[in-house]
Design a protein around this nucleic acid. Structure first.
Lengths: 192, 192
DNA sequence: ACTCCGTTTCTAGCGCTGCTAGGTACAAGA
DNA sequence: TCTTGTACCTAGCAGCGCTAGAAACGGAGT
């Protein structure tokens, strides 16, 4: 029993090591630089060991993505808590776009790369639902007669669009704050 | 002179052939299936010929993307022309998201893949600026005191976010129309 | 008509990718 | 001490984007 548990613990630790190494490598050099060979070298095991933990590179990226969702949820919650109910949406929006800019590789894993994560269903990982619900609470006061969750989806899409188009060079960074202010102005007034 | 021009014409035709083949392959099987080998086989030339026309695979995708922008611009213009000034924004929004759903591979080339295209500058290809200006004209009546171009960037980002999150399974397709209606409601009222 | 030369095009191959089959070495139990 | 099962690594597959060097082609000059 004890030997078994020790092995399981060591295994879990190694899995953490792999995910952390993948994340660090991605944040330092981008996901293109995260190859299974470099990753294996970094955790000081051979390549096939990765496949005894994860089904493939995508699964490793998905694990990093879940970490990212947890961090994002935390930062959104902190931003909302620090702001009053009136300024919650502005604070959360700022926190969201700041996260995407500060952790581009993480944001990529969460949205551009790992397609396999269940999302708009009950099977979605908890950190993921937590982050969304932070957004919902910030949007709710401005929902008027609309469904808060659905309006949040729209608002989230707008934030995500701003983030991705800016990252891709489609929108120029200097005007980011002005754009965010325009978006806020359109959502902090409840119609009908 | 005549020989020279014939050669240039043939060369241009072959370049068109490559771009068309890349687009068809991408639309049929996705960009992952578009490898230089398959593409070369399809145009019935050897692989290196591609590199005498384009700097690399990215440049081929960029050429496809420009085609996509031209088509999108055309469809947006048609939608705006068919609608009255009042319904222009709704019509253009619908046309935009419909285009993204009907031509996913094209949309990918335009926004997810070809990073190298100049965009928010004067060097941006004409079809690209044409599409954006269609959006601007649709947004302008609702801009109020805001800069129409900047507000358009925000609206475009929202559309793009809806499209990409839906495509990635982050938003469920059935509620798309409802989300689009919510977005419209927030932008068809000029604040201040 | 024949040779020459420049261009065009192809064959072959480099270094890399994600992933896996097969064998080795180690550690636990009898 | 020997056996058995597990953990791990070496080596390799098929495919990727891209390129160097050779071959074949077509027009020009004698």
């Amino acid at each position: 029993m004890s030997i078994q548990t020790r092995r399981e613990r060591e295994r879990a630790e190694r899995e953490r090591l792999i995910v952390t190494a993948a994340r660090e490598l991605a944040e330092a050099e981008g996901w293109d630089a995260v190859t299974t060979r470099r990753l294996a070298e970094r955790v000081e095991y051979s390549q096939p060991v990765l496949y005894s933990h994860f089904a493939g590179k995508d699964a490793i990226m998905a694990a990093v993505a879940v970490e990212g969702f947890a961090e994002l949820a935390g930062e959104l919650a902190a931003a909302r808590a620090a702001a009053g109910a009136a300024g919650a949406l502005a604070a959360v929006s700022e926190a969201y776009t700041a996260f995407a800019q500060r952790r581009p590789a993480l944001y990529d894993a969460m949205f551009s790369q790992a397609v396999a994560l269940p999302f708009a269903t009950d099977e979605a990982p908890a950190p993921l639902r937590a982050g969304f619900s932070e957004l919902v609470e910030a949007v709710r006061p401005h929902a008027g007669s609309a469904d808060p969750a659905q309006l949040t989806e729209v608002y989230w899409a707008a934030l995500h669009g701003l983030v991705t188009l800016t990252r891709a060079g489609r929108l120029l960074r200097p005007a980011h704050d002005a754009r965010l202010a325009l978006l806020l102005a359109r959502f902090t007034r409840a119609p009908g």
